[in-house]
Nucleic acid binder design. Structure first.
Lengths: 338, 338
DNA sequence: GAATCAATTGTAAGCGCTTACACTCACTCT
DNA sequence: AGAGTGAGTGTAAGCGCTTACAATTGATTC
């Protein structure tokens, strides 16, 4: 099957080119330190032999990998896709590679993967949100791994981060909903446990409701994980309440998609019979029928900033800034005036 | 910022525990070769010191990484998400880790990333489809890296693969469309260049049309990359043809989502004014309104099989089998009888 | 009691790179 | 002409692990 011919190493290149391994290494890493003539000869040999540097050996000797790790809660839906894509592109442009893992929203798994990425020599890390044990932060600090948090940014925490205030953002949307005359609000929230974004969003709604003189304790809330069918199921349950809610606010666009789809199935017209809102403004939001009113998050901008700041931290130019991004409301057909 | 206390190594553990490095290594890798008493003592020290093995050093010494690499064309939409998730879960269950990169549908980038993953010591690789230069296959064979191809499986190629015959699958759908009385078919295809799946799907439609005694050359085809807005734009263009197509067959669900969304915008009713079909049956397909008639692909099954077969190849139990999966048609509201 | 054997443990040689330091060799400057 | 300079190159010491092989130990056998 496989040709037994062994894989060429730096030594092979050096021997064939008639130079020392140090010179070959320099050709690959610090061109300017090698004379043009030598470099040319070495490069020719590298091509002839089909030599590729061994990453692990390089990482070991150089103690750096030009690799950034990112751990996102899920790859199953597109919530993080666009931001991550921008993150990756920005890193790539600066000569860094990205390693992605998904933690399936399990803190335990996230901790494991953080260790795995650090063990692999990641120069820096991108994590989503704040919620994780202090021991994880301690570990990261002890190992000296620069870490950025994204998709959240809290005024009262000063860890390096880029994102927005999930609570304030959702409160803004709820204020808008209330100002349009809605009184009977129901909520489909993501799982709060271990997810500060979901927690903030729910809190935002409650704060808004309270500020409008209503009792936040009266609001029906269903907590479920971010999957379309869960949104659908939750919506069906909420619609059995009498009197029916006039609006169902969802923790993200995925849940809202499920809700809208179930509404069609139940023969409920949106927004005539009931309004629905989302959060994130992923592509999905504007192919739904009617299009989804949601909180617009600047995914690409967030990804770019995260990458730039993280690189600055890794290269020692920054100790980790906090950047709060503005979000806005994308008003579309799924929310109506009462 | 960072505590300068240095990172514990195997040597540190060995010294503190009063054993040799070999013994510590054995505790971590071949428990049964160490007495219970010693193991216990060593493990205690490992925890106290917060020791984590250095992956790169381990990879170097052991010449294997328990890591599988996967390169998918895009992470931006969910086409590969579910299959990849299943792939990952299956690998994880067998003690393997997954490293994912995205090639943005660029063969050149894919080749680069293959080299990068191999340089990192990936024990095996998962690639999508067949279309890539022979030199890539040669490289992989020379390095002895087991490679699985997924999302495609061609009768006349015998590379290890798991997937389906894209051409046959789409031909089946087209046959169905034609049998329902459609005569004026239009197509929104993905970019053919460098994408054998897209090419096969388009060919499937043409073969079906030809088999029904029509001229495949007459069918309007717009080729565009897999993004919702591109599907929308293409649909708008196709609807300007006179007489209008009775059905627009799309290369995948993402393009179809764009088409449906544009149809609403144009005030065209689906399926009354025009039918639309997709391919893949991702979650999106059933939240669209009307729900999308599409080719159902067994994503999870494909991911699982790919993982199992690849592990068998890596561990020398298989030399690479080819498995063809059956696809089916998900008949839903977007396609109607004429 | 000596020999045999299996179970444990230790010794030490790499794995393929980077890089501090040493060295060589034209040139340039007094 | 001799010293000083700096560009280019080589030498060799690791980086933190795994593992073949050697050594030790205690138990078992005759």
């Amino acid at each position: 099957m496989t040709t037994p011919r062994s894989i060429p190493t730096l030594d092979d290149v050096a021997r064939v080119a008639g130079v020392s391994t140090a010179t070959v290494s320099r050709c690959l890493n610090e061109e300017q330190k090698v004379s043009a003539k030598t470099r040319e000869r070495v490069m020719k040999v590298i091509n002839e032999l089909g030599y590729t540097p061994n990453f692990n050996a390089r990482a070991m000797a150089a103690k750096r990998t030009n690799t950034i790790g990112a751990i996102i809660p899920t790859m199953e839906n597109a919530i993080f896709a666009r931001g991550l894509q921008a993150f990756q592109e920005t890193l790539y442009a600066s000569g860094y590679n990205l390693l992605v893992s998904s933690s399936a929203y399990q803190p335990q798994l996230e901790a494991e993967q953080i260790r795995a990425l650090v063990a692999r020599g990641a120069d820096g890390l991108l994590l989503i949100g704040y919620a994780r044990g202090q021991e994880v932060y301690d570990y990261l600090e002890r190992r000296g791994i620069p870490t950025m948090l994204a998709w959240a940014s809290l005024p009262d925490r000063d860890h390096a981060s880029v994102g927005f205030d999930n609570c304030a953002a959702m409160r803004m949307l709820a204020d808008r909903v209330l100002s349009m005359g809605h009184i009977r609000i129901a909520v489909i929230s993501g799982i709060i446990e271990g997810n500060d974004r979901a927690e903030g969003r729910l809190r935002g709604i409650k704060e808004s409701v309270a500020a409008h003189g209503l009792d936040p304790g009266q609001i029906p809330v269903i907590e479920t994980s971010y999957e379309i069918e869960n949104g659908a199921a939750a919506f069906e349950t909420l619609m059995q309440i009498d009197p029916k809610p006039t609006v169902v606010m969802c923790g993200n666009d995925v849940l809202a998609a499920g809700a809208i789809s179930k509404a069609h199935e139940l023969g409920l017209r949106i927004p005539d019979d009931v309004s629905i809102t989302g959060f994130d403004d992923i592509e999905l939001a504007s192919v739904l029928q009617p299009q989804l009113t949601t909180v617009h998050v600047p995914h690409r901008e967030m990804g770019c900033i995260a990458a730039k700041e993280l690189i600055d931290m890794v290269e020692g130019r920054s100790t980790g800034a906090k950047q709060q991004l503005a979000v806005s409301i994308s008003m579309r057909g799924s929310l109506r005036q009462i």
